[in-house]
Amino acid sequence: MLTEKILSTLSCQRFLTLNEICKATNIDHLIGQQQLKKLEKDRLIERRFFAGRSYFKLTDVTKSTSDLGKKTWDKLSQRKLAIQIGQARTCYHHLAGQAGVQLFQWLNQNHLFERLSLDNYVLTAQGKRQFSHFLVESVQQTRLQTCIDFSERLPHLSGALGTRLLSQLVKNDVVALTSKRQIRINIPLARWFKEDFLEDKSNQMFMG
């Protein structure tokens, strides 16, 4: 069944475009659109409109990756540009790539924000304290802005808070900006996040 092939493709648990799904399943774009609309209506997949196009992801984040899902993601992760700048780079003026996505996941794991919907994240009171502590200035905003990461196809922090965070990381020499949008990691981000970003080291659970 076409729906099963699409769900199998999306089992890679990444945001994929219509074109990428159709290529992976070898189906026509019009048929792909129809099937995706049905799956979205049945709440088996979620759609997020970002940067002028729609991205699709499984609703069930616990579904294991199928062979087709693995093959699809392996192909996307081997794109030339994804390899060249996939580890750490700027996206506008915030941290992107594997480093940016991992940082966003650490924020989640430490309960510094809540996910209300696919593209609606809000800082918790604890999150505001942690950001205020690291940025050495009061953080009053509640809603987080995110991008779908080009290379990782998962969310990373963006917007004003993402910009302020990267600026502080550069100021503290945790990372350094280099040419062609690439970022050099001077201090392992896992260590920085645990030791410098988390204010109360004794009571915070770190998942690296």
Rank of each mutant, 00 (worst) to 15 (best):
L2E: 07
K5C: 00
K5T: 01
S8M: 09
S8W: 05
S8I: 08
S11M: 04
Q13D: 15
F15Q: 05
F15W: 15
L16P: 10
T17Q: 09
N19R: 15
C22R: 07
T25H: 01
N26A: 11
N26V: 05
D28M: 02
I31E: 14
G32N: 03
K38T: 07
K38S: 14
L39G: 08
E40K: 12
D42M: 06
R43A: 10
I45Q: 02
E46F: 06
R47F: 09
R47K: 15
F49K: 10
G52L: 07
R53K: 13
Y55I: 07
K57L: 14
K57M: 12
L58K: 01
L58V: 06
T59M: 08
S64M: 07
S64T: 12
L68S: 02
L68E: 09
L68W: 02
K70G: 00
K70W: 04
D74I: 07
K75D: 09
S77N: 10
R79M: 06
K80T: 14
Q84F: 13
A88G: 04
A88W: 02
R89D: 02
C91D: 12
C91G: 14
Y92T: 10
H93V: 10
A96W: 03
A99H: 03
G100F: 08
V101H: 08
V101W: 02
F104Y: 04
Q105W: 08
N108V: 02
N110Y: 01
H111N: 14
F113A: 10
R115D: 08
L116G: 14
S117P: 03
L118A: 11
N120G: 00
Y121N: 05
V122G: 03
T124S: 06
A125C: 06
Q126D: 09
K128M: 04
R129H: 08
F131H: 11
S132W: 07
S132G: 15
H133L: 09
L135V: 11
L135I: 12
S138G: 01
Q140F: 10
Q141R: 15
R143V: 04
I148K: 11
F150S: 15
S151G: 06
L154M: 12
L154H: 05
P155D: 05
H156M: 13
H156C: 10
S158M: 03
G159Y: 01
R164Q: 14
R164L: 14
L166S: 00
S167D: 14
L169M: 04
V170A: 05
V170E: 13
V170D: 05
V170T: 05
D173G: 04
V174P: 01
V174I: 15
V175L: 00
A176P: 00
S179E: 08
K180V: 05
Q182M: 13
I183L: 06
I185F: 01
P188D: 08
L189S: 04
W192H: 12
W192M: 02
W192P: 01
K194H: 12
E195K: 12
D200W: 08
K201C: 07
K201I: 14
S202N: 11
N203C: 00
N203A: 11
Q204P: 03
M205H: 09
M205G: 03
